[in-house]
Design a protein around this nucleic acid. Structure first.
Lengths: 211, 211
DNA sequence: GTCAGCTACCTATCCCCATAGATAGTTAGC
DNA sequence: GCTAACTATCTATGGGGATAGGTAGCTGAC
């Protein structure tokens, strides 16, 4: 149900078409929540059916048309209700840590490659999020500036602060993941210092026991 | 496809029934990857159909029977192949941070409750993972000890080290999440310092902190 | 005037997962 | 001998998401 609320968050700024939304999504929310357009369009229809949005046909060129959605009072209520109730936390499900727990099965070099992939993935995210923070600070984030333009000046500080807070949390998390993977690289080196390749070969034959 | 590999990881230790697996899952892997039995049983069937496992009927009491699965060489190959290829990283999708980005919409007390929920969820996980580390160190983890019993002594250090490494990473992550939420609480107080809510004021007056 | 590239929207399939429940046999304690 | 609790397995339904398409109109450059 998070997609629904992410869309509501964007539409509270101003009415948009599905296409606009999928672009806005990529530019802003996607750093926190990703969704392809094939998920956005049907969800908008469902939200309209549920009375959270109203869609109006807008002419586009001589023959074309597009559908612009705006939030209804009911939609606003739903969004506020979601914001005011705490999330339910689902249990951990993390492929990287799952793999790490059984890393003795991997070739040392494959284990290292895994760690490098982890580092690369989180480095990219960290840089991405750092850009977002910079955009917030310099006022070059289109979505944020539009949101601010539609909000009373008294709230500008909060809006900016929460966005910044969110991305800073994500940056710190990414840095933690990078550190973790770097410790992983050190650990792999340490464990393979004496027997670089022999360890795996014995393991390979160990699992199917000859009965 | 992670469930499949989590199951393979467990079955490399020794053959098990679906029921055993769902128990073992809860006791060990579930701290990294959770799955209910209704997902495990069909997946085992599929894995058998794919030739990764063989299942044999084992009598259980006078009339009952159960199905015990063991890993085939093909299953072992699949597991090793998974271990040796790097994971693909999917894009961020985090409801807590999504909400945080729009926290100006929430009542201050609801925002605080959200932060407390975050702290509670990660505190529980952190404690859980700390227990796991303690189990690893004291040798009271059944699954781990069984795994060690089936592996050459030369590998015991690695097996233990990777498990410990995994859980330590998760503990550090949980601690980061707790810190983040605590900074969130401070931020909420700061942003609402001039206009405290009625509820907040009442609570502060009713229960002043004992020194 | 036509072609590339963009805007706009939609469909289909498959997989994973959450949740809820159905069924049946076994074991241990009273 | 009965009952509660455990062992064992399976089904059904629906939501959410990934991936991969398809259609149609618009716009601007050459």
């Amino acid at each position: 149900m998070s997609l629904r609320h992410a869309l509501l968050a964007l539409l509270t700024v101003e009415p948009m078409t599905g296409y606009d939304l999928s672009k806005a999504f990529q530019a802003s929310v996607s750093h926190v929540w990703h969704a392809p357009d094939s998920q956005i369009y049907p969800e908008l229809r469902r939200m309209e059916a549920d009375g959270l949005l109203v869609g109006t046909e807008v002419p586009w060129g001589p023959r074309g048309k597009k559908r612009e959605y705006s939030v209804t009072p009911k939609g606003l209520d739903a969004f506020r209700a979601w914001m005011n109730e705490p999330l339910s936390y689902t249990r951990e499900r993390d492929p990287a840590h799952l793999k790490a727990a059984y890393l003795e099965w991997a070739e040392p070099d494959a284990a290292r490659a895994q760690m490098h992939a982890h580092i690369d993935a989180y480095t990219a995210r960290r840089d991405d999020w750092r850009d977002k923070v910079r955009e917030i600070d310099t006022g070059t984030s289109t979505m944020l500036e539009q949101r601010l333009a539609h909000a009373p000046a008294s709230e500008h500080a909060s809006i900016r602060a929460y966005k910044r807070y969110t991305y800073e949390g994500l940056i710190a998390r990414a840095e933690h993941e990078i550190e973790w993977a770097e410790r992983g690289l050190a650990l792999i080196d340490e464990l393979n210092a004496d027997a670089p390749t022999a360890a795996h070969r014995t393991r390979a034959d160990a699992a199917p026991p000859a009965t």
